[in-house]
Write a protein that binds this DNA or RNA. Structure first.
Lengths: 144, 144
DNA sequence: AATTATTCCTACTATTTCACTAGAGTATAA
DNA sequence: TTATACTCTAGTGAAATAGTAGGAATAATT
């Protein structure tokens, strides 16, 4: 029950964009350095984020990526879904692409997975990039 | 962000034991037939459940597995943890075996994973095997 | 016009994890 | 003493993960 590096790295990249929100585009190179993520790999992660209109790109020199909205309008859950697909601890309870299973008594445990799915969605959909940025700055003052 | 077959099959096996709670041990063979799970594979899943004292075994003819407690005393979260280890969407927020990461600003996203972890634990720790059994019987009456 | 910095696109690959299978050994009831 | 179970460990095939690599397109700078 782990999130992949796609979700983890991609989210960190988005936080980096949020921190830079007022300063124009940030290149993959810079993000990858600041966040210590492989440049080529991070490039791939930006594609789904752009496709889902969470970030937009500016090509050419001095280009890079920008958020499409203010940090407080960007939901962490949407970032994760863009990177990993629908949030579902097991395929049969995926809201978007449920996979129906033959077994009648799979319903016995379905309740469990539905509750987990809802709990995770609730947690992720009530956090914005701004929340994370605030968390960072408040932690900085505590000194390590 | 998926649960493995270990968690899914193992939980289904435990529900099967709960349904049979008053009738003595249930063999892996029977469980595997009722739940349509490979016998040899399910055998392996019973080991951690036994080790964590959620089930106990009776060897020899007419043997099998039993719950160690009443279904309403067995927490779904404990079953999942026995089968998959600590509930943690990323390693750094594992309550038992946290893996410390060097990156100071990993803290930026740590909040996210902690919230997810807590949400999942809360969901799983507030369900017992009895809850699932009741869910089954009530669903049976709805037809389908 | 050439150069440089950037995103875009796609194919490839190494590693790891998952989901089993297989078989030999041990305990126990009938 | 035999059949029925659990116990333990090693092996394996397929799939997913986590990247690498390279070239084409685009835009600003010189």
């Amino acid at each position: 029950m782990k999130f992949s590096t796609k979700a983890r790295y991609g989210l960190r990249a988005m936080v980096e964009l949020a921190l830079n929100y007022k300063n124009g585009p940030l290149s993959v190179k810079v993000i990858s350095e600041r966040q210590d993520i492989s440049e080529a790999y991070l490039e791939q992660l930006m594609a789904p984020l752009t496709r889902h209109k969470l970030a937009k790109s500016v090509r050419g020199a001095y280009g890079g990526y920008l958020l499409t909205k203010e940090p407080n309008k960007i939901i962490v859950g949407d970032i994760i879904r863009a990177l990993e697909g629908p949030i579902a601890p097991v395929d049969c309870v995926s809201k978007d692409e449920p996979r129906d299973c033959q077994r009648a008594d799979s319903c016995v445990t379905k309740l469990v997975w539905e509750k987990v799915r809802d709990a995770v969605e609730d947690a992720l959909d009530n956090l914005t990039l701004e929340d994370l940025c605030q968390n960072l700055t408040s932690q900085d003052t505590t000194g390590k």
